[in-house]
Design a protein around this nucleic acid. Structure first.
Lengths: 127, 127
DNA sequence: TTGCATTAGATGCGGATGCATGTAATGTAC
DNA sequence: GTACATTACATGCATCCGCATCTAATGCAA
């Protein structure tokens, strides 16, 4: 049935809007981070090694240009550092600074709290 | 469990990004509509009566200012008309023109096709 | 080597969004 | 009626995004 997809889509749309809005507000007010910024920090914190910009691009749902700018913002804020890549001098490594890791650690509970609130009663399965 | 929410959220994020991107491209290329524009047309087509801007605002996931501009764009394109509200002269009614209805009818299959492709194998239930 | 295609990332640009605010109409208290 | 709060919508502004493009480095072929 065609209409079932529409219902699902509307649900995705609603949850996305609600969560994004909350995340933006909560993370912004309490930690000075945007949702995209947190997302990048979160991915970086998830791995132990440095990541290529390209690898981040696969994990975050942003265009390459948008990611480039998010990382630039984070670097200006002192939360990450960009480093040249030895084996491919076109490449750029990104890794968390101590401040970056601390900020992520501080913001994590806020992030999770928002998710918990929005998805608490949402019986959505895996894909 | 806390991490379950994260998985669900990532899924919502992924589906939203994928669907939005496709919708923007398909609707844009084939019908000259953005995703927000189509969304508004779709809601208007769903009701038979005129809608207040405010009512639309509740259904579409846009800020009031963004909606105001989307409607302005649609009106400039000749797809909707804005009309004054008799009982409350602050209010604004919006309704589809014949062109608007035709454009919506033409774009609907494209929209549904995208949803079908993205959600084809997504066993997501109702909320 | 030289020459061309490809890739990684940065950036100019136009467009869309949200927040804060402005304007006009309505409601309310006195 | 007057004054103030509130509501509906529009708009100035800053920000963020994606697309197209640019630069530099790499790969590959002759």
């Amino acid at each position: 049935m065609d209409e079932a997809f529409v219902v699902v889509w509307h649900d995705v749309l609603a949850k996305h809007a609600r969560t994004m809005c909350m995340l933006e507000r909560e993370l912004g007010d309490k930690h000075g981070l945007g949702a995209s910024e947190f997302e990048v920090l979160d991915r970086l914190a998830g791995h132990e090694r440095k990541l290529r910009l390209q690898e981040l691009c696969d994990e975050v749902h942003l265009s390459q240009s948008a990611l480039s700018r998010v990382v630039a913002r984070l670097e200006k804020a002192g939360l990450v550092v960009r480093g040249a890549c030895d084996v491919d001098r076109r490449g750029v490594f990104v890794c968390l600074t101590d401040d970056g890791r601390a900020r992520h650690t501080a913001a994590l509970p806020t992030h999770r709290a928002v998710l918990a609130e929005v998805f608490a009663d949402a019986p959505v399965p895996v894909a």
